[in-house]
Design a protein around this nucleic acid. Structure first.
Lengths: 335, 335
DNA sequence: CTGTTAGCGCGTTCAA
DNA sequence: TTGAACGCGCTAACAG
């Protein structure tokens, strides 16, 4: 039924070793023989069995990718960066959603390792000892992607979330704002949550502005939670003049909430966020945001992983990609 | 270095067949023996090699997914549906972006088959004879996902794009609109492009409205192309009173273009689209759209594939999921 | 209930 | 430049 390397060998009148050589581009084959083999392959419609190949060579040219949620635009963008580079280096990716849930993450890491992936790209929540333990039980390289490791014992590619948040808030401060609210992610989330909140606090502190916990609400990164948080702010006795959102989506929710209340952005309130997803320029007013190079984070981490898999020495095992504030229309002077 | 089933057998004082049995949950093992084996597995940190398993059993419990572009919100949503169900049935997915490019599609189909996937989920552009040919060279089941096959010789899961477009335009017509423009996808694209355009024409025809080619522009599904198309319409000597967009993103571009020109939606012009992505409720006015159940399309097609892979008989090899018009705020009466 | 023995399809020595 | 033979780690009969 299925045609194997052995069939090709017989058809071409050579040994299977020779067929293997031509399939693997081994130069030690007489051109004439090579031609014969190719013809036999063509005639029989031979398709090399990658599983058998993987067993014999102990390489699968497949990498595992654990991702929080592929339906989230931000991560989908990273995934595309990963896949493009993977493809370029002839790797395929096995994609697993783990929703930043530790148990699910550990589970998929293990099944990925069972599948003998040549490397692992991990995008998740906090990296715990259990994660480290799971990584260690195999000897394939791992790189963290848009994810930080407290001990940074594992190669990683990310932006500096704290600094990104700092810059965002700084932008507001430079514009004259003093009463700045924040729509944060959960503090359990090291990068999108905790780090960005720290950046917010540091920016206030640096400017000599007192931190006011009434000006901070935590959302779940989604549009609706941005609306909710903003509603809360709008009922405060003394309104903020600007709000910093940990993500674009919540920022857009905030903008619409402000507009629905009859106020204007940025005339009455300014809004800034971190992400700069494609949606940022798809709102009116267009959203001013700190750009996080998601595609590049994916691409660079995959590139790094290919080097690790080839056991090349890498100069930098922890790369921090630059962020940049993209000024659009949602930030103005305080009223 | 790596611990194999053989090591476990020795450690537990049984044969490898027995170890294989307990790992595979074969009931024919004495509970006591089973316990011994589990302990040995634990002690040695044994992790079954799925590649070897795949070679011996001719099953890899992985399915190949070819997708146009994972960074596109619509497809990302489908992908999530696929992965959730795959996960539920203990399959993993290898994800390949093919950008609806025929060559790329054929190429990834082949490498997926080399990897011995147990099934294939194909999401792409037109299904040509070459595609059919590639599918046929293996004997794994294939299901088309959000993709139509002219001859429908392959199981598929999708909505009826023509009818969805028809219903959208019908909605406009029922509201009293007669001069209805369309921002179309490329006609080369069977479902999102051609079928939706056909639906538009049929709706006009049914209502006795003459088709006017000046009222149709084709875009590339992106926001900017919606803006461009709308700009064109706004310069027409006689403006349309409503526009039907083949996708949400272009519709949002159109809305913003209208607003930027000082006009209002839906007071001056109505806008409707097909998709109903999460973005639809993230614009002001919120977008009225025909809902395409993307997550379900993914989930159902994966479920169908599992049945096919288990050689279960399926009642319906061509499933058409229902669509529904979601009325929000972007459609009103003609001025 | 358990063990023995063939392969699965291929890469890779080692000789020739 | 080529071929023979072994083994990758496991499943699946087949015996017992």
């Amino acid at each position: 039924m299925t045609v194997t390397i052995y069939d090709v060998a017989r058809e071409a009148g050579v040994s299977m070793a020779t067929v293997s050589r031509v399939v693997n581009n081994n130069p030690n084959v007489k051109p004439q023989t090579r031609k014969k083999v190719f013809e036999a392959i063509e005639r029989l419609g031979y398709r090399p069995n990658a599983v058998a190949r993987g067993l014999a060579s102990k390489k699968t040219t497949t990498v595992g990718v654990v991702i929080p949620d592929i339906s989230n635009a931000i991560f989908a963008e990273v995934a595309r960066g990963i896949e493009d580079i993977a493809n370029m280096y002839h790797y395929n990716i096995i994609l697993c959603n783990a929703d930043k849930k530790k148990d699910k993450e550990i589970r998929v890491i293990n099944t990925l390792l069972e599948k003998q992936v040549d490397g692992l790209l991990f995008m998740g929540g906090a990296v715990t000892d259990e994660h480290l333990q799971a990584f260690k039980t195999s000897n394939v390289p791992v790189v963290l992607c848009a994810t930080t490791d407290e001990n940074d014992s594992i190669p990683s590619v990310d932006i500096d979330h704290e600094a990104a948040a700092f810059d965002a808030v700084q932008t507001l401060i430079n514009q004259g704002h003093k009463r700045i609210a924040m729509i944060s992610g959960t503090l359990q989330d090291p990068s999108n949550g905790y780090a960005r909140f720290q950046g917010y606090k540091r920016a206030l502190e640096t400017a000599g502005i007192d931190y006011d916990e009434n000006l901070v609400r935590t959302g779940n990164y989604r549009y609706e939670s941005g609306v909710e948080a903003m509603k809360y702010f709008l009922e405060l006795p003394e309104l903020p003049t600007a709000v910093f959102s940990a993500t674009d989506e919540m920022a857009i929710g905030a903008i619409h909430c402000i507009q629905d209340s009859g106020r204007k952005v940025p005339d009455d309130l300014s809004v800034i966020s971190v992400d700069n997803s494609r949606m940022a320029s798809m709102v009116r007013p267009q959203l001013t945001a700190v750009a996080q190079p998601m595609y590049d984070i994916g691409a660079v981490s995959m590139r790094l992983l290919t080097k690790l898999m080839k056991k090349e020495t890498v100069e930098q095992a922890r790369v921090v990609l630059p962020h940049e504030v993209i000024k659009r229309q949602s930030v103005g002077n305080p009223k």
